[in-house]
Nucleic acid binder design. Structure first.
Lengths: 228, 228
DNA sequence: TTCATAGTTCGATCGTAACCGAAGCATCGC
DNA sequence: GCGATGCTTCGGTTACGATCGAACTATGAA
């Protein structure tokens, strides 16, 4: 007994409904204020404040003061991965809050997963990149090919700029709604940013869903075809 | 708010220290009785019984009656992966129950992670397989090479027998003690089984550690050299 | 049959943590 | 300076769940 690290602490941190809701909301990657988080948690600001303090000392959150606001974000990408993996697990068990039907169509179509694109469009993008030979899937891992590197340069992404950090270029991330892999890592982030830059899509204020403009939709589907 | 699957339920299930200890013990892959689990949880049988019932309806455990015993196991491999990933996360945050020193040397040297080898020896094995060109690491994924397939046949493992199931052949699993990857998947399982078959190592009754015999130790180190 | 072991269920106790109202700081706009 | 807004801290209430003793069921052994 008492072998290894203490799972119970973080389990308990995530185990409270209000905290879980706040964490899930922060998976959107956007920094949120304490009042906003109180809203998604369905509790008053006082209670939210104590929750947030606990999450912070637990190492799941970081806060940043700015004026009279305090912006909270997930501490790092590892937290985001943990939350998403728990969501995937819970979805697989049928631990759904609502019935699994297409309750939030926009959320299933395209949403943000920490900093990259998830949902139907995220899965489609990775599928297409693999089909075109830009990305190679080996086991559970992903690797960018030379063809992929030149293809990406055509749409304005210089992979050389991304490789510097310790963060892996390509990472596969499992989607709870699709139960399929989509592209994470610094490349996944860069791609989403380029879509936003080009005005193809924009983030919504309160939800994690990503809305594509009609034109952006056309461009995206053209760029990442599915040849079924 | 209230988007996606319910994380809080499983978080709360893992969030109780007694339950977390039981789950961690079951990560050893071995089926344990309610009384044994009460022991590792540090609680009485009555309390353990209610905990186990909760874990079962939560979908984390399954039980199997055999005589007057009830053997509990993790519901499936996904649960094991979730627990190990949480351990890895917790270890990275310094959420350690004891100080990180070599508290359980045997456990750090070689232990079982659901059904494959973890710890120092697990990491060494994968490193060696990669160095010898038997396994190729691509991004975060692992793939068996042709050389690896023939090499494995020499030690009595026919990869053809393993590929049938839906479970991936090679999977990388992050180790909480070493913080490095080791080999999971059906190949990782097959390798560990062959070690046990050959009498090189044996599982211990109460702990998750794996004990190598002096001869088995020699063979293992010869088979998986590290050329630093 | 009787006894022993393994496990569950019941009932009651107890602690802890979630929760909110109210008060206290801090920052912004005026 | 003043009031308004955002957030934290304090105090007290409340509710839930972990815990165990005791009683009950089931299997096995003698």
């Amino acid at each position: 007994m008492k072998e290894g690290p203490d799972i119970a602490q973080i389990g308990a941190l995530i185990g409270d409904p209000a905290r879980a809701n706040m964490l899930a909301a922060l998976t959107g990657g956007r920094a949120l204020t304490a009042t906003e988080l109180a809203g998604v948690g369905g509790i008053t600001v006082q209670t939210a404040s104590t929750h947030l303090a606990k999450l912070e000392v637990g190492g799941l959150l970081t806060q940043r003061k700015q004026g009279r606001h305090r912006y909270f974000t997930l501490a790092d990408e590892a937290v985001a991965r943990l939350i998403e993996s728990m969501m995937g697990f819970a979805a697989g068990r049928g631990h759904l809050r609502h019935r699994p039907g297409p309750k939030e169509p926009a959320l299933r179509k395209a949403r943000i997963c920490y900093d990259h694109l998830a949902g139907d469009y995220g899965v489609r993008m990775l599928d297409s990149l693999i089909a075109s030979g830009s990305i190679e899937a080996v086991g559970e891992g992903l690797a960018l090919t030379e063809k992929g590197e030149s293809d990406l340069k055509c749409i304005g992404i210089d992979v050389g700029d991304l490789g510097s950090s310790r963060r892996p270029l390509c990472r596969s991330c499992l989607d709870w709604s699709e139960r399929r892999a989509h592209l994470a890592g610094s490349l996944g982030k860069a791609l989403l940013l380029s879509f936003l830059d080009k005005g193809w899509a924009r983030r919504t204020a309160e939800s994690r869903s990503i809305l594509f403009s009609p034109e952006g939709d056309r461009q995206f589907l053209r760029l990442f075809p599915i040849d079924a």
